[in-house]
């Protein structure tokens, strides 16, 4: 699938995500919009996966470490055929499989339960290490938030990933520059990321994480060391009034805002 097609799918996923946030009255829309292009590239181009065999041993692994954007993953999984598209409407409803953070024992395609931050990367290191030990050819991808990189567990795993020589592991940092209550810069500024990752022994690629023609080659890049993609993204990407506004970490649009946002995303379609 080519970048233009991927862009179209990403816009459809954004629109469905927005609708679901509006209908459920909850979600983490800012970080969902920043990550959706990356999710689209992974699920519609890069990952070797079989939606009808979600536990296929040779499947590529994807770990959504920033589990609070579960809705974006659910919409993507639905569009890719892992779960019924109409099931997205059950998001956050009583007894729905789709709660606010993904559950691997309920939702096909989810690999491990995330929610508390700093969990996905250590698990992804274990997945990639398992492939090295068994000779499996699958690759492991993990998406973290940039604020999430403040969790020390990530740096334990970054050190292990280099020590184990995990050239089959790709970490994507969704660098949208905002965390829950403020900008990264005003909180605990780990940026710039590249020098830090390089110092730990990783290859680093910096991209515009909302541009398909940069995302795809970065995800498909292969080297001899673990690979970190620092994806510069915009929180709320695609919806003008949300973009780069910290308020939209988990704010829900009102009816008027919703109408404007739907119009903007539909126009792009």
């Amino acid at each position: 699938m080519q970048p233009n097609d991927l862009d179209r799918i990403a816009r459809q996923i954004r629109l469905r995500d927005l609708q679901a946030v509006f209908e459920a009255g909850a979600g983490h829309i800012g970080g969902e919009m920043s990550a959706i292009d990356i999710l689209t590239a992974l699920y519609f181009r890069v990952l070797r996966i079989w939606p009808d065999q979600p536990k296929h041993p040779d499947r590529d692994r994807f770990v959504l470490s920033k589990g609070h954007v579960a809705l974006a993953l659910y919409v993507t999984l639905a569009k890719r055929g892992f779960i019924p598209e109409e099931e997205v409407a059950t998001f956050l409803k009583p007894h729905s499989r789709l709660n606010g953070h993904p559950n691997c024992n309920k939702v096909p395609g989810v690999e491990t339960n995330t929610g508390p931050l700093g969990h996905g990367l250590p698990v992804a290191v274990g997945m990639a290490k398992a492939a090295k030990l068994t000779g499996a050819t699958y690759r492991t991808y993990v998406l973290t938030g940039d604020g999430e990189m403040q969790e020390g567990s990530n740096w334990e795993a970054i050190a292990s990933g280099a020590q184990f020589g995990l050239d089959n592991l790709t970490l994507i940092i969704d660098h949208n520059r905002f965390q829950q209550g403020a900008s990264l810069k005003d909180t605990n500024n780990l940026a710039p990321f590249p020098a830090k990752l390089e110092a730990f022994g990783w290859d680093v690629t910096e991209i515009n994480g909302n541009a398909m023609d940069e995302i795809v080659p970065a995800l498909e890049k292969r080297g001899s060391r673990p690979h970190c993609i620092v994806a510069h993204t915009n929180k709320g990407h695609g919806i003008s009034f949300m973009q780069d506004k910290v308020d939209w970490h988990h704010k829900v649009p009102n009816a008027e805002q919703y109408k404007i946002a739907v119009a903007e995303l539909s126009e792009a379609l």
């Binding site: 491990t112 698990v123 992804a124 274990g126 997945m127 499996a136």
Partner: peptide, 12 residues
């Protein structure tokens, strides 16, 4: 512990 979970996911 996280690496342990990942190793199990990879079939070990």
């Amino acid at each position: 512990v996280g690496v342990g979970a990942g190793l199990a996911n990879g079939g070990l």
